[in-house]
Design a protein around this nucleic acid. Sequence first.
RNA 1: GGACAGGUGGCCGAGUGGUUGAAGGCACCGGUCUCGAAAACCGGCGUACCGGCAACGGUACCGUGAGUUCGAAUCUCACCCUGUCCGCCA
Length: 424
Amino acid sequence: MHDIRMVREQSAALRDGMQRRGMLEQLEPVIARLESLDRERRQTIQTVEERKAARNAASQEVGRKKKAGEDASELQAQTRALGEEIARLEATLSDTEAAIQKGLYEIPNVTLAEVPAGDESNNTVVRSWGTPRATEGVKPHWEVGEALKLIDLPRGAKIAGSGFIVFRGAGARLVRALMNLMLDLHTRDHGYDETWVPVVVNRASMTGTGQLPKFEDDMYGLTDDQGFLIPTAEVPVTNLYRDEILDAAQLPLAMCAYSPCFRREAGAAGKDTRGLLRVHQFDKVELVRYCRPEDGAAQLELLTGHAERILQTLGLPYRVVLLAAGDTGFSSAMTYDLEVFAPGVGKWLEVSSCSVFTDYQARRANIRFRAAPGEKPQHVYTLNGSALAFPRVIAAILEHCQQPDGSVVVPEALRPYVGLDVLR
RNA sequence: GGACAGGUGGCCGAGUGGUUGAAGGCACCGGUCUCGAAAACCGGCGUACCGGCAACGGUACCGUGAGUUCGAAUCUCACCCUGUCCGCCA
């Protein structure tokens, strides 16, 4: 969420940011309305506070008179009328403020200068690693997965619904292996603090990271309670320090967490629905960092490198894509997608999305730090990235490491965790 | 799930419906004293918003929300959270 002051004082930069996302036309009415609501709000505040000052003075006078044994009934009646006026003004004010809030929630973050303007056709591959193998003769992961009895999609659909996966045998062990490998690397080599968090969170947390109010349809909500299943560990982990003020010495703060993730994928019907590419529940190790504003860009490079390291360790060819403004997520200021090549389906699969949110999330979630004792707290910059999402990594392994006989060579780094060299 | 008890400033802890933003203490900052330090003493010490170039003025905030009242930290209701005991349960 932006600060209303951003709208007031930096409206040119805001409009430029929306232009670069290709959303200015759509959002111009919202911005213009915010500008007028802002003026309205301040106007009303002035009036209401002036009336309150008058009421406070009159109330004290009533008290004084009563104490002195004088009659205060007339003054009381006047003050009551004043109170009624205040109530009306406050109702107006709270309407105005709600409208401002709503408007601010509709405006996405402004992207950083190095982010290319325009829609996804302007996404840029900034580097790549490894050599994608030829697609010739490589079977899609769902065929291998089924043949090797690693994945049971029909039974997943039976017990939960389509888009829910069952892993079996070595497939299930592969999931556990990935979890351990990733957590080990991030905690041992990359300095992340391992965290284990609830997969159910409340509305305040979902609002803090920006899933609410705009994307409620994408999430699973609990029907009897006011909770939601998390779509990513970003939500609980980033919210850990919601409404807190950190010491400067705590920054940069780095946390990683394994969690299952739940997504309704509403509106995605028919797209990438085969196999493991788009499912309602999947596992992921997530990286979350908080840093000082001046470190934001460097921290994004660092975090992205940590995610890349997993793909390198697994020996899977990938490329790093800098998303154009129009393709960058709502709350994000800059995002790199990591795409691994899956020769069986002949596609680059997004297995990670690493973003810096500047202070956009931190403002919403009210996460601050004090640069020096006695200074005013300011918002941290938040970052996160998957490292990595399991199902697509598994798909890539089943395809990239596939042998002509249909068996799959387990990436070397994973062998101690899986306990097998080849899946056959 | 049931029964009690409780939620006040960075922390502890007072608070009778009326100059209470809130006693007192701790912590913290500045000063006096000291060769220096400690102790003692003196002073300072919340946040947000609105107006103002500023000095400053105003408003709001005692878990959250609503209500009663001329006036609410203080009274009423609902909700949330914490603690203790009971029940149930992996």
